[in-house]
Computed example of a mutant assay.
Amino acid sequence: MCQQPNINRREFLAGTGAMLLAGAFAGASQPEPIIDIHQHVHYAARPDAVLIAHQRAMGIAQTILLPAGTAAFGTSTHGGKTNGLQAQCTGNEACFQISQQFPKEFAFGSNEVPDLPDAVQEIEKYLKKGGCVIGELKFGLDCDSKEMQHIYKLAEDYNVPVLMHWQFQMFNFNFERFPKMLEKYPKVNFIGHAQTWWANIDKGHSDQSILYPKTKVTPGGLTDRLLSDYPNMYGDLSAGSGLLSMTRDEEHAKSFLNRHQDKLLYGSDCDDHIGSGEQCQGAQTIAEIRKLAASKAIERKILHDNAKKLFRL
């Protein structure tokens, strides 16, 4: 059902070489630990050994691997076009196996296509093995559908967060109705991620078809309000959308990071192979957080402490 990791000797040596090269330029001092809550196995065909080296090069102490669901061909995967989280990512067993090989560095989530008949059972199987989150839920279903609510209830039963990819007319439909789910499942911690989530930090964001807005931000958008008003709502700063939410208006971002310092989590969601430089989105996001955080305490919360607490790492 899921592809197994393929960490052969040749790939591992190549990946380790990249890690050592990056370390040579990083200096001898040990960096403060960072938790990356959002990475994937076989992301855009990246070899597993290169993933491991990439995370080490970025200075990540612990990484949460988010699996894809089973290959399926219904409406929730757009006829199969978005299998593998639309990025060739592998599933539960692949993430679990890497966590077993490198238990100090990698934790794993659990996932399944929600409208498959055994979705809850498949997710529960890996929660029982130690999965610390459900997701990334990236499927073409209403956010308040019965299939999604079955998963929210499972998260409540196992006391694990749910990470959701919000993308207008593509994944997790009807973002504006999600407050009802936060109210219905107050014991479940939800983590928002992706384009529609981050576009809606802006109160002036009216055209939801614009996924990567670059205008200045007026505080008070739906995302801003959800983080303020609901104790069980968190934000994942990963991907291009998370990085853009800061770089599009750095003055706003400074106040936003300060306002939601206990609710924001660092993630990379990066398919880069090196772990540094302009091509590495994950490294750029770390640098932006460090640049904009008003204090060292806020920086440490976002890069480490909030995730450690939320995921009980």
Rank of each mutant, 00 (worst) to 15 (best):
T215I: 04
E250G: 06
L141Q: 07
A57S: 15
D48T: 11
L257F: 00
I34Y: 04
H40R: 07
P161L: 05
Y185L: 09
T223R: 09
A14M: 07
I298P: 01
P186G: 10
Y212L: 13
I286M: 13
R10N: 02
S268W: 05
K216R: 13
P161F: 08
K153C: 04
I98V: 15
I298T: 13
L211E: 12
L222C: 04
L154W: 10
D202S: 11
T63N: 06
P186D: 08
R300A: 10
S228N: 12
D305A: 09
I201P: 08
G204I: 09
H150F: 02
T75S: 09
L154D: 10
D48F: 10
T196K: 09
A253W: 06
K129Q: 14
E250W: 11
A14F: 10
M1R: 02
A14V: 03
D236R: 03
L21C: 06
N189C: 08
P231L: 08
R10H: 00
K301N: 01
G192F: 05
C89I: 13
F106N: 05
M58A: 13
D262H: 15
P219K: 07
P5V: 00
I34H: 03
C89N: 07
I151Y: 01
N159L: 10
F12N: 00
R290G: 08
A44H: 15
K263L: 04
P47R: 10
S29V: 03
Q149C: 14
T90N: 02
P67I: 02
K187N: 09
K128L: 11
N83R: 07
V188F: 04
K214S: 13
D118P: 03
F25R: 11
Q208T: 13
I289H: 06
G109Y: 05
K296L: 05
R259N: 13
H205E: 14
A45T: 12
N189I: 01
G17D: 11
G204E: 15
G242N: 09
